[in-house]
Simulated assay, not measured.
Amino acid sequence: EGGLPQKYDADGNVAIASSPKEVRTFNGADYVLEESLTPDFGLVHAWKGDRHGNLVFHATAMNFNPLCAMAARITIAEVEELVEPGELDPQHIHTPGIFVQRVVVAPDTEKRIEKRTVALTGKTGA
Rank of each mutant, 00 (worst) to 15 (best):
I98E: 14
E1M: 15
H58F: 12
E34H: 12
N65M: 04
E114L: 14
P5M: 08
E78A: 15
G2M: 02
T95G: 07
A59M: 09
G49H: 05
T95Q: 05
V104M: 11
E1L: 11
G97D: 07
T95C: 11
H92F: 15
R116P: 03
V32Q: 03
G122P: 07
A69C: 07
D9Y: 09
M70T: 07
V105C: 07
F57I: 08
G12F: 09
R51C: 01
V56F: 00
P96Q: 10
P85R: 01
L88D: 08
I16K: 13
A72T: 05
G28A: 02
P66L: 02
K111C: 06
L4P: 06
T60K: 08
V79K: 09
D89R: 12
P20R: 07
L88E: 09
M70R: 14
F26N: 10
S18I: 05
E78K: 14
Y8G: 03
E22G: 02
R51D: 13
A15R: 11
A69I: 11
L67H: 10
T109R: 14
L4N: 11
I98D: 08
V104P: 07
A59R: 14
V44F: 04
P39G: 09
R51L: 00
Q91K: 15
L33W: 02
H52G: 10
R116T: 12
K115V: 15
V103D: 01
P90A: 03
V32Y: 11
G3M: 03
L55N: 11
L120C: 03
L67S: 10
V56I: 13
S19R: 14
I98S: 13
T38F: 04
A72Q: 02
R24G: 00
D30G: 13
H92T: 13
A119F: 13
K115R: 13
P5N: 08
V56Q: 12
K123Q: 01
G3C: 02
N65P: 02
M70F: 01
Q6D: 06
R116D: 04
A119T: 15
R73V: 07
V83Q: 00
T121W: 06
E34V: 08
A61K: 03
D11Q: 13
G49Q: 08
G125D: 05
E84Y: 05
G97C: 07
A59L: 15
V23T: 10
I98M: 12
D89N: 11
